[in-house]
């Protein structure tokens, strides 16, 4: 008897968060605001500027979804989450979707009851070291101290990779990218490891980026993508469609600039359907037919967003690589809009 009382009392702490609602779309519409889980600050991906406006690659996806659903890309409440809190925040309903460079893995998709709706960045885990260390390959890192964000897939990859290569290392656990950056900069670790895109972003934020190198080894596959709660397929469809619309728009050459013109004049029925001139695609996901137009209007198509936030013209300077369209030798491949 006392045992059940005890368990019951503990439960309050364990499950304080309310029951996640099934109809996320209705909730978001009623609220008039999209709650989007982002990282606590990663240059180029999600970072608030001096005025508190969030910008970045992941942030743009949140804005596109908000524009598609609510008609306004600014109606987003960004909820910063750490590697440790992100999935709980999503599962408990604190955020409607997660756009937080999270790796799509089997167990997260199934056991954690999440649904990854696509991949917005194909990444892999790398290492960054100080140039004066004289290290040119990750295989020379035997005995090194490595800073690692806890609760991430990179933590597990790191352990596996060092084991497979029969090297030893000392992990230093950090909670956020900012903390990792600070520890690495202070010299508390020889190498910092996370997704290569994250390393590039971190390096770009340093005062002396030329003194740090990212080692050539990419030790894992990290498909990063937006995630939603398992079980609300309608909402998952909306987020997936928005991401696909951005990718397809680039493939068809639809940009935020020429969108109106193409909608009026394009002979291509695929573009016509995407932009809602023909067909009733919007109704199929319980939105209106202009949903994709609004999503693209906020920050442009996938390519425009990439170029503006993390592309080669930005301080982060990431090449498209795997993230080019399939027609350009990359992996981006949106299903047909039909």
């Amino acid at each position: 008897m006392t045992k059940s009382v005890f368990l019951g009392t503990l439960t309050v702490a364990g499950l304080a968060a309310g029951l996640a609602s099934a109809a996320t779309l209705d909730d978001v519409k009623a609220r008039g605001e999209l709650n989007c889980g982002v990282s606590t600050g990663l240059t180029g991906f999600s970072l608030p500027d001096a005025n508190g406006n969030w910008t970045g690659f992941d942030v743009s996806l949140c804005r596109a979804v908000a524009a598609a659903v609510l008609g306004d890309g600014t109606k987003v409440k960004f909820v910063p989450t750490t590697g440790q809190t992100r999935f709980t925040a999503l599962a408990s309903g604190e955020v409607d979707m997660l756009a937080r460079n999270s790796t799509w893995t089997f167990s997260r998709d199934t056991d954690l009851k999440l649904d990854f709706v696509g991949v917005n960045y194909y990444d892999g885990q790398g290492f960054m070291v100080r140039k004066d260390l004289g290290v040119t390959s990750a295989k020379e890192l035997d005995g090194a101290t490595v800073c690692i964000q806890t609760g991430t897939t990179t933590e597990l990859n790191l352990a596996d990779w060092f084991k497979v290569n029969n090297l030893s290392y000392t992990p230093v656990a950090v909670e956020t990218n900012a903390e990792g950056e600070q520890q690495y900069a202070a010299g508390a670790c020889d190498a910092y490891t996370t997704d290569a895109s994250g390393l590039a972003a971190t390096r770009a934020a340093f005062a002396d980026p030329e003194n740090h190198i990212i080692l050539p080894e990419i030790i894992s596959k990290e498909p990063l993508g937006p995630a939603v709660r398992h079980g609300d397929n309608e909402w998952a469809d909306i987020v997936r469609s928005t991401l696909n619309a951005l990718i397809a728009a680039e493939e068809y050459g639809v940009t935020s600039a020429n969108m109106e013109e193409l909608a009026a004049n394009s002979p291509n029925p695929e573009i016509q359907r995407l932009l809602g001139v023909q067909g009733d695609l919007g109704k199929m996901i319980r939105l209106d037919n202009d949903w994709a137009k609004r999503a693209i209007a906020v920050g442009g198509n996938y390519g425009e967003i990439f170029a503006a936030t993390i592309g080669e013209a930005t301080p982060i300077g990431l090449a498209r690589g795997l993230n080019a369209q399939w027609t350009q030798g990359g992996l981006l491949y949106a299903p047909p809009f039909r």
Binding site: G83, Q84, F87, S107, R108, T150, G151, E155
Partner: peptide, 9 residues
């Protein structure tokens, strides 16, 4: 309460 919780959910 940290890594295990996170990795297993």
């Amino acid at each position: 309460g940290g890594i295990t919780l996170n990795q297993t959910g």
